Computed example of a mutant assay.
Amino acid sequence: MVVDLLAQGIEVPPLSSRQIATEADVVLAEYAKRLGPITKPPIEIEDVTTSVLPLTFGFSDLQSQLGGRVHGAIWFSRQHILIDDALNPDRFPDLLGRYHFTLAHEIAHWQLHRFLFLDEDGHAVLYGDGEMPDVICRKDHARPLIERQADEFAGCLLMPEWLLRPAWRSLTGGDEPICDRQLQELVPAVEPIRFLIDADGIEVEPDPIRLMREVFCESLADQFAVSDEAMRIQLETLGLFTV
């Protein structure tokens, strides 16, 4: 089973949004140092994984092996990430954005949380058999702090503010946020049936405001090679979508 931090008396320390964004920028600065300046999207997240960080990654049927809706997992001592086969972009090109976000999410655990699992020499500090991953990324509604931090880091890594704001300016003609009333004038009618099934095959009640925002930012999501949902969330985080 996954190591239970709280059961062993270890709490995930709180991090501010500024701290998380700074950690993501540290990784991107190292990328620029090693591989050249980042002047436009998308962030080459696979290169970040293997050329900037000491990590390897691959694909496996994690949902069968670990149970439930598992998207990714990381082994800190092995420095290895596995992504579920269902997100393999070679097999499912339409899920490229979700794959990128999941890989960035696992990188976040390495960058933000490995010190909870490894000592300075890279040895495990918590009880575990070494076979099971240290952290499993599941698609659940109730997400603990360690997962929420990893989601926020992934957004900052794939869509850093210093790269996203110029793209927003090019899209909208300015730096100002757009409110939902303005969006109603800019976004054509959304086909509700398109959104009745989520990425996990579960029927959901469409949220018209969320869908309207995601339709508006589709071109930005394509530029950054992320999902419409991830782009919407990052724009909301930066205050560029407002009620």
Rank of each mutant, 00 (worst) to 15 (best):
D47R: 15
D47S: 14
T50E: 11
T50C: 09
S51D: 13
V52L: 03
F57D: 00
F57S: 01
F59K: 01
S60M: 09
L62P: 10
Q65I: 08
Q65C: 08
Q65D: 12
Q65A: 13
Q65V: 10
L66E: 02
R69N: 14
R69M: 11
H71W: 12
A73Y: 00
F76K: 06
S77K: 14
S77F: 11
L82E: 11
D84F: 02
A86G: 11
A86M: 14
L87H: 02
L87D: 02
P89T: 03
R91T: 11
D94W: 12
L95V: 13
L96G: 10
Y99D: 02
H100R: 15
F101E: 14
T102M: 07
L103A: 04
L103E: 04
L103N: 05
A104I: 06
H105P: 09
H105C: 01
E106L: 03
I107D: 04
Q111R: 15
H113E: 05
R114T: 02
F115S: 15
F115V: 15
L116G: 03
L116Q: 04
F117E: 03
G122E: 02
L126P: 13
L126R: 10
G128F: 04
D129Q: 00
D129S: 07
G130Y: 01
M132D: 12
D134I: 00
V135Q: 06
I136L: 03
L145Y: 08
L145R: 15
L145C: 07
I146R: 10
I146M: 12
R148W: 07
R148N: 09
D151N: 13
E152F: 15
G155A: 01
C156E: 14
C156N: 15
M159A: 07
M159F: 06
P160L: 04
W162E: 06
W162T: 06
W162Q: 07
L164D: 03
R165L: 12
P166W: 01
R169T: 12
R169P: 10
S170P: 08
L171H: 10
T172N: 06
G173W: 03
G173T: 00
G174C: 04
D175R: 06
E176G: 14
I178V: 15
C179W: 12
C179D: 15
R181C: 13
